[in-house]
């Protein structure tokens, strides 16, 4: 009995199953038929050039574990090339030449700013650590700047002079210098921010007046200034900000693809080189003022001491402050 019942139950289930599946099965067979007719490789075929135009670049799946190689084609490389081989050398070349010519002109026409004030009494302007910080940053900066310039102008001017082998060796050393001296430079910028930020906070009244008087450049007066005048403060803030930008982009270039893909690396490089050349232009100006452009200024960073009379003329508020202590 039970056996017979089970048998009937199984039969019912089977019939139900067949009934339920039949429409699905016919549907599938139909789909296969239609599919066979619809296989039209031309319609399905991707068109390489269209795809590139739509997406701006081509990328896909790659068996090797290297995401940057999954990009099949990135024509953006051509734009970066245009920047690197034409806009950058022309722009930076004109900028640097213009700054040098301008300063040369000022020097020839106006000559250095005289330091007539001599009292014979010295006052300490920068202590040993401040001078160490300054020269650490300055020396590494100059080598970074020269090796950086070599990346762009070396092959244009130096290579024809010394030949490809010598230039290759020199550039290899330049690259090591750039890669390793970047660290003392970053340290220097950091120290500099720490030791000088308190003297560089803008003071609205004094700094505005100084800037309005053009620093006294044109009428040979000495507008009031604290430890740093408004011009020096501008240089300080520029070095701090540009120093940070150069450090961040530089580290990105040192550890390529750690944070960005190839297009990100291109942009990083553009920022690094553009800010780098602006930095060089500003520092050429700074070096001019500190050496040729103004008598008496160099001593402050040389042996750290300046004449009290000079200090009174250029940094009156600071001298008063020092004497009060």
């Amino acid at each position: 009995m039970t056996h017979g019942l089970n048998w009937i139950r199984a039969l019912v289930v089977m019939i139900a199953l067949v009934v339920a599946c039949a429409p699905a099965m016919t549907r599938q067979a139909g789909a296969q038929e239609a599919g066979a007719q619809a296989v039209n490789p031309t319609a399905m075929s991707v068109q390489a050039d269209d795809l590139l135009q739509q997406e701006g670049k081509l990328q896909g799946y790659l068996a090797q574990p290297d995401p940057k190689l999954a990009i099949l084609e990135q024509p953006q490389g051509r734009l970066w090339r245009a920047f690197h081989e034409s806009w950058l050398p022309w722009g930076s070349g004109i900028l640097i030449l213009a700054v040098v010519l301008l300063l040369g002109g000022v020097y020839l026409l106006k000559g250095p700013i005289q330091a007539d004030e001599v009292s014979g009494i010295k006052i300490l302007r920068f202590n040993v650590f401040e001078r160490f910080t300054h020269w650490l940053t300055a020396i590494s900066f100059i080598i970074l700047a020269l090796s950086g310039i070599n990346y762009i102008f070396g092959k244009r001017y130096l290579l024809p002079l010394i030949g490809p082998e010598a230039f290759g060796t020199l550039s290899q050393w330049g690259k090591y210098a750039h890669n390793y001296l970047a660290w003392p430079f970053m340290l220097g910028v950091l120290f500099m921010i720490v030791v000088w930020v308190k003297d560089n906070v803008p003071q609205r009244g004094v700094d505005w007046a100084w800037l309005k008087a053009g620093g006294g450049m044109f009428n040979n007066t000495h507008p009031s200034a604290g430890r740093f005048n408004a011009g020096q403060k501008l240089i300080f803030w520029w070095v701090a900000l540009a120093g940070i930008v150069m450090s961040v982009t530089g580290i990105m270039l040192l550890f390529p693809f750690a944070a960005f893909g190839v297009n990100g690396m291109q942009i990083t490089q553009v920022v690094h080189s553009v800010v780098g050349f602006l930095f060089i232009a500003v520092i050429i100006f700074h070096i001019y003022i500190g050496t040729l452009g103004m008598e008496g200024a160099y001593d402050a960073m040389g042996n750290g001491e300046v004449d009290v009379a000079w200090a009174r003329a250029h940094h009156d508020l600071w001298v008063e402050d020092q004497l009060r202590k």
Binding site: L69, Q74, G77, R81, Y151, E165, G168, V262
Partner: peptide, 19 residues
């Protein structure tokens, strides 16, 4: 290219459209 002269700066990779 010449591996003797190359300094390994990686610029060619940034410019190359094909990686």
């Amino acid at each position: 290219h010449s591996k003797e002269i190359c300094i390994g700066c990686g610029y060619c990779f940034y410019a190359c459209p094909f990686g």
